[in-house]
Measured scan of single mutants.
Amino acid sequence: DESNKPILLPNESQSFERSVQLLDQIPSYDTHKIAVLYVGEGQSNSELAILSNEHGSYRYTEFLTGLGRLIELKDCQPDKVYLGGLDVCGEDGQFTYCWHDDIMQAVFHIATLMPTKDVDKHRCDKKRHLGNDFVSIVYNDSGEDFKLGTIKGQFNFVHVIVTPLDYECNLVSLQCRKDMEGLVDTSVAKIVSDRNLPFVARQMALHANMASQVHHSRSNPTDIYPSKWIARLRHIKRLRQRICEEAAYSNPSLPLVHPPSHSKAPAQTPAEPTPGYEVGQRKRLISSVEDFTE
């Protein structure tokens, strides 16, 4: 099969070098950035008060330690540790928490760990991170309901609301924008112990962030949302095809390698009803078989 044979790379090609550099910018793992907010007593309706908090309760602090690993920003190499735009020179604080497994990295933009500057009256330095995160974990210690939209931002799609209760338990629920209701189930609340709260809140936030990324990708319907490693695979396959075309153009005697095509017509299947918005969006999480067989 010609399409699977190794090909020689061009010795000097600026377009090839640019493509390789672009490939280096696509990590081999999925990345997520999640905002974390603490809401104190009497702050449920005040964005400024929430963003001005420099610490929270003892249970909130224990919750943070379970979310991930504490890292010092100045020691991080952005090409190895995903920071979601946090500055490593102290502009966004000294520490944050991050978490990773074999296929993804997540960083938490924690408002109480970011510096509260006197010259920044409206807390814009914090909002440029927190307001651009799709998902926020809100530790609501106010005793009042927290409403979506209290923290203004164009991309605040989903809130994971943590409400501490007695007996070391917590109520965990989801809020989302109306255009996200087909992807996020907000109907079920959970009672979770303090011990298990970081794991549950983190998983709910990661799932909500993946759904938000799919939702946000609708602005470019021709580019369905893939995982990062599938995006790398697609980029490599496009690069291979372009090299083959350039080689055939410079030397017409060489065969032009095309991806294999299936001449056999697909079997006719009964027509199915058109899937609704929710089903269609969830299918976009699934990769096409052509990603692996071309």
Rank of each mutant, 00 (worst) to 15 (best):
S253F: 07
F108V: 01
E72C: 11
G280P: 14
Y97M: 15
C89N: 13
S261G: 12
D30G: 05
R195Q: 11
L9R: 09
A211I: 06
E17W: 12
K264Q: 14
P78C: 09
V184G: 03
R282T: 12
A247V: 10
M204W: 04
H235S: 08
L48S: 10
K121E: 14
G40F: 01
D166M: 04
G85S: 11
D194K: 00
E278N: 12
T112H: 02
P260D: 15
L22C: 06
Q14H: 10
R59C: 00
Y58G: 07
N220L: 05
H159R: 03
Q77L: 09
C98Q: 12
D133V: 08
T61P: 01
V172D: 00
E91H: 11
A49L: 07
Q21N: 09
P275Y: 09
S227F: 11
H55T: 09
L70V: 10
D185Q: 05
G42Y: 07
A35H: 02
L67F: 01
R218Y: 07
S217A: 13
T163K: 06
C124H: 15
H55P: 02
G40Q: 02
K264S: 14
I71S: 07
S250Q: 09
K228M: 04
Q213F: 06
Q43I: 01
D92A: 11
R123H: 15
E181N: 06
N4I: 12
T186Y: 04
M204R: 01
S212W: 03
D194F: 00
E272A: 12
A248M: 12
L183K: 03
W229A: 12
N251A: 12
D30S: 06
K264Y: 12
L206T: 02
A265P: 11
P226Y: 03
D179P: 04
S217W: 09
L239P: 06
D118K: 15
V135Y: 00
S52R: 09
Y249P: 06
Q21K: 07
L256M: 12
E168M: 05
K5S: 15
C176D: 00
L86F: 11
S13Q: 09
K33L: 06
E47P: 04
I71M: 11
L73K: 13
L285K: 05
F157D: 10
I103Y: 10
P255Q: 10
G42A: 04
L171H: 05
A231H: 11
P27R: 05
L239A: 08
P259H: 14
S3F: 05
R282S: 14
Y167L: 05
V88W: 07
P252K: 10
V88A: 09
S28F: 12
L130T: 08
V279E: 14
S217V: 09
H32Y: 12
K74C: 08
K127F: 08
I161D: 02
E168A: 07
T31Q: 15
A201P: 01
E41G: 03
S187E: 07
E62C: 07
P226C: 05
L254W: 13
E272R: 11
D166Q: 07
Q281S: 10
A248I: 10
G84Q: 11
T65W: 07
R218A: 12
V119S: 12
G182I: 09
E17T: 08
Y277T: 13
Y29G: 04
M204H: 03
G182N: 05
Q94R: 14
N209Q: 03
K178E: 09
T61A: 06
L70P: 11
D102K: 03
T96W: 02
S3C: 12
G276D: 11
P255K: 09
F199R: 02
V172Q: 02
C98D: 05
G276K: 08
E245N: 09
S15I: 11
S52D: 06
V188R: 05
Q213Y: 07
S187F: 03
